[in-house]
Computed example of a mutant assay.
Amino acid sequence: MPKLTDVCRHIRSKNAGPFWITVDLEFRDRAAYDAYAHSQALQPAAIAAVFGVDSALVQHHPVPDLLVLKVSYPRQRPQGGLLERDMHGGQQYVRLLDLEV
């Protein structure tokens, strides 16, 4: 099975406010988007398992015109909190790189 890094040309994560993280998955082409954007591995339950959050809170936003899938989930700790280790949310995407889709 291909990994997410095989089918996406760009993967990034960022803050979506102090309580949320958004991951942007930019697929290589229309064929990759059509084949993998709605994969079970990218559904809210699977994303929730990767990041250890409640699947009911994971948001899944396909943007077919841009060949992008945006996935948002709540941060485990608020941005800038005492135990928070990724102030800008820019390192969260790493957990998805080897995800098989």
Rank of each mutant, 00 (worst) to 15 (best):
L66T: 12
K3C: 04
V68K: 10
Q43V: 11
E26R: 04
R30E: 15
A37W: 11
R12P: 02
L57N: 03
A37V: 13
P18W: 07
W20V: 08
D65M: 14
Q91I: 07
S39V: 08
D24L: 03
L82H: 12
D98H: 10
P44V: 05
A48E: 09
A16F: 09
Q76F: 04
V53M: 05
F27T: 07
V50G: 00
F27S: 02
M1S: 07
G81L: 01
R75Q: 09
R75Y: 13
T5C: 04
A49G: 05
G17R: 03
G80R: 01
Y93H: 14
A37T: 12
P64G: 01
A46F: 06
R75E: 09
T22Q: 08
V23H: 07
Y93T: 05
I21N: 01
R75N: 04
D6Y: 14
P18Q: 03
P2I: 13
P44A: 01
K3S: 06
E100H: 10
Y93D: 12
A35H: 11
H61F: 14
A49F: 10
L66H: 09
P64W: 04
R28D: 11
N15K: 00
Y93A: 08
Q76G: 11
A49E: 15
P18L: 00
Q40E: 15
R28F: 10
I47M: 08
H88E: 14
F51K: 02
A48V: 13
Q59R: 15
T5G: 00
L67P: 02
A31V: 15
K14E: 13
L99A: 01
P44H: 02
L99E: 10
W20Q: 07
P74R: 05
P44C: 06
K3I: 14
S13T: 08
M87V: 15
S13K: 02
L57R: 12
E84S: 05
L4N: 04
K70L: 03
R28K: 14
G81H: 13
P78Y: 07
V53L: 03
V50A: 00
H38D: 14
L66A: 13
L99D: 03
V68P: 04
A46L: 06
C8H: 06
C8W: 09
S72F: 06
A56E: 13
Q92A: 11
G52E: 12
I11Q: 04
V68W: 06
L69G: 02
A48S: 06
L25T: 03
A37L: 05
V68D: 09
A16G: 12
H60N: 10
P44Q: 05
A41N: 06
L4H: 06
L96Y: 09
D24A: 02
A31Y: 12
V23Q: 03
Y93M: 04
G81F: 14
G89R: 00
D6H: 13
P44R: 01
L82R: 14
G90P: 01
V23R: 01
V101S: 03
R77P: 00
Q40C: 02
G80D: 04
N15R: 05
Y93L: 01
V23M: 11
F19C: 01
Y93W: 14
A48G: 04
D6R: 07
L57T: 15
V71F: 02
P64K: 01
R9W: 15
D54T: 13
W20N: 07
L4I: 13
D34H: 02
